[in-house]
Design a protein around this nucleic acid. Sequence first.
DNA 1: TACATATGATCAT
DNA 2: TGATCCTATGTAA
Length: 291
Amino acid sequence: MTALEFAPAPSHDPGETDPVHYGSLVPEGHTIHRLADDLADDLAGGAVVASSPQGRFTNGAARLDGQLLDRSEAWGKHLFLWWSSGELLHVHLGLIGKFRRVPAMESASDTVRLRLERDDVAWQLTGPQTCAVVTPPDRETVVAALGPDPLRRGARRREQFATSVRGSHRPLGAALLDQGIIAGIGNVYRSELLFLLGIHPERRASELSADDAGRLWDVTVDQLRRGKRWNRIVTVESADVGRRITRTLPREDAHYVYKRGGEPCRRCQEPIDHIEIAGRSMWFCPTCQPR
DNA sequence: TACATATGATCAT
DNA sequence: TGATCCTATGTAA
C-alpha cells in the first residue's frame, strides 16, 4: 500500500471504502471540508510535531511545532487550522496541491512543504498554492472575499447566493467559478451542476429566475455533501448509469458531462458538447441544456 | 527522457 | 488573454 492509498479515517467513512481515491483528488470545496474534519480527527488532542522536509516552510513549521490543534475549518477551497498559540495555518491547495495522510513511520520526500505528525499518523502537504501562518484578521480578509459556502451553516445563504448570482451579467458557467459568488465550486462541479439543472452554461446568470437560483443552490448543497461524504465527485444517479452507485464506481462513470465530449448523454443519447468559458473547458448536453 | 495534462488562482499585458 | 507557480502522472519518443 502506497502513501496515496492509506485508508481514510473510519469516522467519516461509514460505507464502502475506495482508498485509492483518498488524497488523490484535485480539490474542490468538498475535498477541503473533508480534509478539515479528517485533520482534526487525527491531530487534535495532543502536541503536533511540525516540520518542512522541503525546507520552504521551515520558519512556519517551527512556529507550529509542539502546538495543539484547537480546530480545523474549511471556507470554500481555503483551509484554516487554529492552533493553541492563537495563530492559524492557512492552506489553499490550488490546482495540484495535496494533503496526504500517511503512517508516521513513512519518511517524507523532499517535495513535502509541511508535515504534521501526531502519534502514528502524519499529514504531508505538497504543491500548495498557499501555505502560511496567519492571524485571525488575515483569515477575516480571505473570508470576506468569499461568497456563501454550500457546506457551511448559516441563515440566508441560499438567498444571498440567489441575489448575488442574479446580479452577475456573465455566463452562468463563469459565475459558478467565481468564488466571490459561491465558494467551493470548481471545474467539475460547474459542468455537472448545470447539467443537473438543465441549464445551458452560456445562459447569463442575470437571466436566472429566483426560483431557479434557489434550486441551483439546493442541488449544489446536496452534491457537495455527497462529495464530502464519499470524498470524491459522483453526480450520477443509478438509473442513468444502469448500475447501483457505490463508492467504487469507476471514474469514467461518475459524471454526466465532465470530460465526456462526443460521448452520448446518459439521459438522451445526444453527443455531449464542449465549450470554453472563463478560459477553461466545460461540457454540456445541447438537448438536456437548451440555450 | 520529455512532454502534456490537471478538479486553481493571480498577476502582467 | 497569456504567463506563471507548484507536483505527480500518464503517454510519447
